[in-house]
Write a protein that binds this DNA or RNA. Structure first.
Lengths: 255, 255
DNA sequence: GAGGGCTATTGGTAGGACCATATTGCCGGT
DNA sequence: ACCGGCAATATGGTCCTACCAATAGCCCTC
């Protein structure tokens, strides 16, 4: 381990400080500085997806810190979804594109830990999913509509053998968002339908009649889209979401 | 350090495994297990906001791991916004309610690292901020409207001495979201106006005329709210956001 | 071609030195 | 006797060194 920057064997490395010229002492954590540096490198595109960072030992040498510090930085980056760490030979830290699942998870814990009622979350979801309807009507391609119909059919089948679940419904709503051909919107809706709803509505398959109704509405919605009838589509979606909202409101399970 | 659970001085602690009964070796990281445990405690409400966790040294003893491992776990929790770490006497790890800023940051990096165009993000923002207008009109109290007017006045003042900045505009939009009296919506809008827009539109004070126009529209919007004229308010907001969208679209700076 | 050793790399431990900060208590001045 | 400032102490995070264990891809041998 190179020690030339440090006077004593465990003097704070800081950021090259320690020469005694009263340089502003690094008030921030060393590991945080490393996190920021690597994050910046990734955001600038100088480190691309699947690129491999140097090994922990190399990094300590380059940063002039100990392995522990580097590892803390890697942990933070990993928990933020920016890198993925693999063990074993040819292992190491690899840059990974953060998935919507990751951010959805963060959003879910945020909502769970905050004093938010399920009703509030549902309302926010309604605003968003209703707001995109005009865009969906405008941009949905025949392929999009075919994909939606395919999901509807799978839901009908699932209803028959009673395997209908919240997951199928979520799939439909995500596919609707995909019809906007806007990756940002799709990602946000995905975030909503990720761990969030799963945790919020434990009453998943509570009412079988729910599934039947929901499935029918899904189909009517697709038809409206196909007719380019934005008003009708919005009305259906509003009723569809409102029913979910009504079901979730009475419980008012704060978290 | 208590070592009684471990056979050798550095045997993997696992989760109390090691008795030799071929118990499934803890394939996961020890620090991750600690993270999960503490996270669970917080989500269950057994650790509440501002509660103080035991000190690092106590935690190692209770978990039967080394300090490095505990510290890695604390780092992850801190980066996730679940705890806040203070140094010095009476310091330690304190449970903190994750702020919208934190999740907004995660959202921002996600959006920046994903192949999203600024136009897509702006469109998503438009959908949301337009969608809440009816709710705002419906629920805004006189106090809410007074707060909005106050911001407008501050913007007028700022225009005079040329200190108008994006921050003031963001403040207005967040206050509008607050008028919904829905914490989830407010948090999402805050997330949008957090680090995301700041990084997206470096052209902050590019056009002074922009600020003038924007400020005027803000004021007209408030008036429409006061009249409970949802259509007019939505129209103003649409034009207002559209102008921002148009400004950001031509550049098409992917990230 | 299949299997076993090699090696690079992460995961974890122990123990210690250092730094930051709040509390406490002493001491001198008033 | 009271009070303000200052130093000692206790608490607790931050970082270091050195070591060992587990893992997984690669290559070499059979």
């Amino acid at each position: 381990m190179t020690v030339e920057q440090r006077k004593t064997k465990s003097g704070r490395a800081g950021s090259g400080t320690g020469v005694g010229l009263f340089s502003p002492v690094s008030a921030v954590r060393v590991s945080q500085v490393i996190v920021d540096q690597i994050r910046l490198l990734i955001q600038q595109g100088r480190l691309k997806t699947d690129d491999r960072l140097p090994s922990e030992r190399d990094l300590c040498e380059q940063f002039g810190v100990s392995r522990v510090t580097v590892r803390e930085a890697l942990r933070v980056l990993e928990s933020g979804g920016l890198i993925e760490i693999r063990v074993g030979a040819r292992g190491g830290a690899f840059v990974s594109t953060p998935s919507s699942a990751r951010v959805g998870e963060g959003l879910a814990t945020l909502l769970k830990l905050s004093p938010l009622t399920a009703a509030e979350v549902t309302e926010a979801r309604m605003v968003f999913e209703l707001g995109i309807v005009p865009i969906v009507v405008d941009r949905a391609t025949p392929e999009d509509i075919a994909a939606l119909k395919e999901i509807c059919e799978r839901q009908q089948d699932a209803l028959k053998d009673e395997s209908y679940s919240m997951t199928l419904s979520a799939e439909f709503h995500v596919q609707v968002a995909a019809c906007t051909h806007n990756a940002a919107i799709e990602m946000l809706v995905k975030s909503f339908h990720g761990p969030l709803l799963m945790s919020l509505e434990e009453a998943k398959v509570a009412a079988p009649v729910m599934g039947l109704l929901g499935s029918t509405e899904h189909r009517e919605f697709v038809d409206a889209i196909e007719r380019h009838d934005a008003d009708q589509a919005a009305a259906i979606m509003r009723a569809h979401l409102q029913r979910t909202a009504d079901r979730v409101a009475p419980n008012t399970p704060a978290c």
